[in-house]
């Protein structure tokens, strides 16, 4: 198990290095002059040049990449900064450290993505098993229709429809104002996940409000994931139901709920887990859109705002974060996989 873990992590290193390189190239290929932007419209050419030098933009690209990665040791400095020391540079737009900026917005996105994933799993897993058990029946056909339709509906459009129905028409749920009503005191807990923090503090009113604000974005970001997980679970369940070990389990007296929970669901799970990893990556991308519709103060919005302001350290950080999260999600999936399916470890 440990050696498997080490092998998997080692295989990630070249990919992560490639990812930083690509993130660097993309953000430096952006049009516009960050130094001028940083200096402001009224700055003199000399001032702009001074800023350019301070930001290190006057150096060659390889040198800039080196500084970006391992700090000013590259430029003969004293060993400060650099990605490997956890320094993502300072945002040109906000002036704060990018790491801090991102750190402040990360919980919002995490809460959104986690809720979306939970929603997708809670809907798709039981439905997938059920559809397989009732293969060919109406429910199965309905599920297939839903899965085909589900991938065809853009998440940002679904977000809008949800707003239209539940906020504008029915007025059951709050509008797109972010995680809590405008002007509300923000809970300040250790995790930054409002649901967790308010729960720990026993602040039920805020908890409830946070839940209501989360519901629509959760469905919007989670719905597109329902289709693939449902489909996969159904097919996995079908092959499990037709397997010899189910037949033998039955012959040995296994029946009812234990049969479905312990055997069917348990054996169909590995497939669903793989899909979940893929989906996690997709959701991080989708967060940009859903966060925009709901004014959700997460990293997706931050990335977007950085982009239109040519704030390249922030863009770099955002692009990097997405890729790293995606990659790590895959790693976690592989590890979970190896725990729940012993055959994986052999490969």
């Amino acid at each position: 198990m440990l050696s498997y873990l080490i092998r998997r992590v080692a295989a990630l290193i070249p990919i992560l290095i490639g990812v930083t390189l690509l993130a660097f190239i993309v953000s430096h290929a952006l049009p516009g002059d960050p130094a001028r932007q940083y200096a402001g419209i009224n700055a003199s050419d000399a001032q702009v040049e001074a800023i350019r030098e301070r930001l290190g933009l006057d150096r060659s690209l390889p040198q800039q990449y080196c500084i970006y990665m391992i700090g000013d040791t590259c430029a003969g400095g004293s060993g400060k900064g650099g990605l490997l020391r956890g320094d993502l540079g300072d945002s040109i737009r906000t002036g704060f450290s990018v790491a801090e900026d991102v750190g402040a917005r990360l919980p919002a996105t995490l809460e959104l993505v986690a809720a979306g994933m939970l929603f997708a799993l809670v809907v798709a897993l039981p439905l997938g098993v059920w559809a397989a058990v009732r293969k060919g029946k109406l429910l199965d056909k309905f599920c297939r229709f839903i899965s085909t339709l589900g991938v065809a509906v853009p998440d940002f459009w679904l977000a809008m429809i949800l707003l239209l129905v539940f906020f504008i028409v029915l007025q059951w749920l709050p509008g797109p104002v972010g995680r809590l009503p405008i002007g509300a005191t923000l809970p300040d807990g250790p995790t930054g996940l409002y649901l967790v923090d308010t729960l720990v503090a026993g602040d039920w009113a805020t908890f409830w409000s946070a839940v209501k604000h989360l519901l629509l974005p959760m469905v919007a970001i989670g719905f597109p994931a329902v289709a693939p997980i449902l489909r996969l679970t159904r097919n996995a369940t079908l092959s499990v139901l037709n397997s010899d070990y189910i037949a033998f389990g039955r012959a040995a007296g296994l029946r009812g709920a234990p049969l479905y929970l312990k055997y069917v669901l348990r054996n169909a799970l590995p497939g669903a887990v793989t899909m979940t990893g893929l989906i996690a990556g997709y959701m991080i991308g989708g967060a940009v859109l859903v966060e925009r519709v709901f004014s959700w103060p997460g990293v997706g919005q931050y990335g977007y705002n950085s982009l239109i302001n040519t704030d390249y350290p922030a863009i770099q950080a955002y692009v990097l974060l997405s890729a790293v999260t995606y990659t790590v999600a895959f790693l976690i999936v592989d590890l979970v996989q190896s725990v729940i399916d012993p055959r994986v470890r052999l490969k």
Binding site: S243, D244, Y245, A247, F248, G249, R250, A251, A252, G253, L254, R255, K262, Y263, R266, N267, P270, I340, D341, P342, R343
Partner: peptide
Amino acid sequence: RGHRIGFVPQRPRGSLNPVFRVGNQLSAT
């Protein structure tokens, strides 16, 4: 099933659940 009539299958390897240890399957039974 199992209590009064025991069943021995045709394809033994496929008849054991791949995700559990065989001891676990036997003692669960």
